[in-house]
């Protein structure tokens, strides 16, 4: 789950998770200084990145984990960790603040991780249509844009189903290159 700060990623995860979303942390040290811009805080040598996640047991031996990506660009080292082995990504967007999700979309395109864009409605209201969002984000036609409600278990479940269906379609069409 990616998206701008405060768009509802943790709420989205919490809506379907069988446990309260947990938080794991990674300590970024000087080793990742090339990624983290420490220029503004010259005395700081470590940073902690927190990441929320939830769990869904789908079968006796099948557990789906939902990770909310840390929002800030400088924490992309965590994203690299998440992308390997990931089924796909949901980019959660608030259509009033679309620019917040540009970095996530660029990142997933670059990483060749299939993603869909889920518009999070507020009180059931969607201020923009799927087509407006698609155009504003310059999304290729094959990337699904769906409506969701991060507070609703059914809406979140249906968004996840759409994602996995899309991933299967992409895999069937492009084979292993995606």
């Amino acid at each position: 789950m990616a998206g701008g700060f405060g768009v509802g990623k943790t709420t989205f995860v919490g809506a379907v998770s069988e446990i309260l979303p947990l938080t794991t942390e990674a300590v970024m040290t000087d080793a990742s200084a090339g990624i983290d811009d420490l220029g503004l805080t010259p005395n700081k040598t470590t940073t902690t990145v927190a990441m929320d996640f939830g769990r869904l047991s789908l079968d006796q031996d099948l557990i789906l984990y939902l990770f909310g990506t840390p929002g800030q660009h400088r924490f992309w080292f965590m994203w690299d960790d998440l992308v390997r082995g990931a089924i796909g990504a949901v980019v959660l967007v608030d259509s009033r603040r679309l620019a917040d999700c540009f970095p996530a979309i660029d990142y997933f395109e670059e990483a060749q991780l299939p993603f869909l864009v889920a518009m999070n409605g507020w009180e059931g209201q969607f201020l923009h249509s799927e087509e407006e969002v698609r155009e504003a984000l310059s999304l290729p036609p094959h990337v699904p844009v769906v409506r969701t409600d991060a507070r609703s278990r059914d809406a979140v479940k249906s968004t996840l189903i759409s994602l996995v269906e899309y991933v299967l379609t992409v895999r069937a069409a492009y084979g292993r290159s995606f």
Partner: peptide, 24 residues
């Protein structure tokens, strides 16, 4: 470790996840 096929979940796993989600 997760079942991966060239760094991605294999198709069988995806199918199982999909049916698991639908059953929820």
């Amino acid at each position: 470790q997760p079942q991966l096929d060239a760094g991605k979940p294999d198709l069988n796993l995806l199918e199982r996840v999909l049916s698991g989600l639908r059953r929820l």
